Amino acid sequence: MSSPARRWGLPAAALVLAVNAVGFVVAAMLIDEQTAATFFVALTVPTMVAALLAVAITVFRGNGPVTDFGLPTTLREAGAQLRAGLVWGAASVLGGLAIVVVLLALSGTTEESPLTEIGLPSGWKVAVALWVWLLAPLGEELMFRGMLWGALEKRSMSAGWTRVLGSPWVTLAITAALFAAWHGEWWRYIVLLWGGVAIGMARLRTGSVFASWTAHSMNNLLPAISVLFLPA
């Protein structure tokens, strides 16, 4: 028996992304003093609120996050999605490193992380590292490979869309491009774009945000570890 049609689409996805974007703007306006605690709040709260909104929308206007985001319901499903996520996460890491090497060879410059300007005590380093590794990927996957992906899938089944525009590959391309642009780090847009494609492949192959979250977390593992070695 198929699940009832969900009553959310592109407007809901746009709302979630808008809440995330506005949250970062408001956080930057309200937080003047750049301490470790205030930086952590500004870093985490906008994404957390947007992710919770995404889940709430699936609960009240859809079939719940398990169905709408393709989350596993058995250990067998979880294992298959985990393996797919690890494979595409590895592809994201290796491809990203190769692109960075090429970019460094061409430009010879890199951008410093904003974390280096604040200074983080050891406890805050662990908190930020866990956020970068696990929780930020979860929030972003609920937004991009959850809400936006699902909204584009729904739109592709509507009348008026051509066969090409309704292709899952177009959904992959749109979500990857917007995911890369969303970070606002244009000096590494190509790296983020490749990451968005590889992470999206995990979603495409499994139909699950759990797989893309696994891939995204694997992609973020090295940056998370690097946080632990930043100066205090």
Rank of each mutant, 00 (worst) to 15 (best):
G166I: 12
S113I: 07
L71A: 04
L43T: 09
V126H: 09
M147N: 04
V93R: 13
V45Y: 03
M48S: 11
R203G: 10
A198R: 11
T214Y: 08
G95S: 08
V25P: 00
E117A: 14
T214S: 10
A50E: 01
K154N: 12
W131Q: 00
G195F: 08
L138I: 01
E117N: 11
L221P: 08
A42H: 03
A105I: 00
L130F: 02
S122N: 15
T162C: 08
A159Q: 14
T58I: 04
L106A: 09
E140I: 01
V59A: 03
S92A: 15
N220Y: 02
L221Y: 10
G184M: 08
S156C: 03
I118G: 06
S122P: 11
R7F: 07
V227F: 11
A211I: 00
L204K: 05
N219F: 11
T109F: 13
A28E: 13
G123D: 07
A232I: 01
A50Q: 01
L106Y: 01
G166C: 11
L138K: 01
F144M: 13
R188S: 15
V66N: 06
E77M: 08
P11G: 06
S158V: 09
G108K: 06
T38F: 08
G139R: 02
G64H: 02
G139Y: 05
A129M: 02
F39Q: 15
E140L: 02
N20L: 10
F39T: 15
W149P: 07
M29D: 11
V170Y: 06
R76G: 14
K154E: 14
P65M: 13
L115Y: 07
S212Q: 07
L17H: 00
E153Y: 04
G62F: 09
T67L: 09
Y189C: 05
